[in-house]
Design a protein around this nucleic acid. Structure first.
Lengths: 184, 184
DNA sequence: AGGCATTGGCTAATAGCATTAGCTTTAGGG
DNA sequence: CCCTAAAGCTAATGCTATTAGCCAATGCCT
């Protein structure tokens, strides 16, 4: 029998595909195996169990987001960088709502590391405001809470009113920026 | 055989208990039935299926939160009201992290209604700033994104650094308030 | 080239879950 | 006192993850 030529990478790819199409609850070993054209137990050769697969998916998503944020702040600084960062963040959540909804996982070492990378990007962006140490940490947490909260709510359809979401997000970003400038 | 004397209310009570102890994934018909001292299929006399039970739990949680927020703003207005509101919100998420994590559900009519009640409270609180119509809607969305984002991240243990979370949240609230005052 | 260990696939079996069907018993109102 | 509606039950189905153990393909080493 010809081998399918799977790998952990490939399995995670297919898992992401499943998430994109059916949301986080559609990430099932059966769905991934079907996509791979393989029997379910074969997946255990590449992944310890479903929990690990979920963690791997989460890490992949966080890294994807980190890449986009890095690209967004390249060549910018200060308010402009923060605005670009926040816009890129939301753009990712809007473009891949299901994927974004799958980002939250039980805390485990692998995802923690991916999360630290994300935080590092934010910290670097805030250096332009002269924020270091604890002040920067607090500011980063605020940016995360804002972007993540908006992303989660938007992705889950919690904003039902007809007002434009772009305008709401714009206000949110201005809330962040104005305080950052004075919080030096 | 003596009846257990269940009701939809009682089933939701037990479901909430299960969520509190084991998180959203612990909300299973088996767990609820065990708590009720009843066979699993008996639950279907009180609840259409697991999805409906989840929605009912979500509604219950949102209403609980709404009650707390209402109480928090009673007798206050303006900045003080917003600060009390945000503090109460976070306090709920901290006190019941698992419960808070179970709040997000697929959009359905019942939860939508509970969500509108929450939004109504926020809108009323913002009236003190002279915010009406669209401006108020945008501001409400920002408050929701901030409080919810922080709550989700804190409840899931995403804030690992030693800096005090109280201070981070305080900065977040100040970000909101300062812009609200000038956004009239 | 040939042997052989490693690897990646398989089938079969188990156990937990939700859901449905259909039966029995309880409780309470005429 | 009956008898109907509600609330419980058991049994059966089908989906899920997971484990055990088998077999074939791959590729390295001589």
């Amino acid at each position: 029998m010809a081998r399918a030529g799977l790998s952990q990478e490939a399995v995670v790819d297919l898992a992401l595909q499943a998430v994109d199409e059916g949301g986080p609850t559609a990430l099932t070993l059966a769905a991934v195996a079907a996509r791979a054209g393989v029997a379910i137990p074969s997946l255990y050769k590449h992944v310890r169990n479903l929990a690990e697969l979920r963690a791997l998916v989460s890490v992949r998503i966080m890294n994807e987001l980190s890449d986009l944020l890095t690209e967004a702040v390249l060549g910018r600084s200060g308010d402009e960088a923060v605005r670009a960062l926040m816009e890129a963040w939301r753009a990712y959540a809007v473009r891949h709502p299901h994927r974004y909804a799958a980002i939250i996982q039980a805390p485990d070492p692998a995802t923690a590391q991916a999360g630290e990378r994300l935080i590092g990007i934010l910290l670097a962006t805030l250096r332009a405001y002269g924020l270091h140490g604890s002040a920067a940490v607090h500011a980063v947490r605020c940016l995360r809470a804002m972007a993540h909260g908006f992303g989660v709510l938007e992705a889950s359809g919690a904003f039902g009113l007809p007002e434009k979401l772009d305008d709401s997000y714009d206000l949110l970003v201005r809330m962040a920026i104005s305080r950052l400038r004075t919080a030096r």
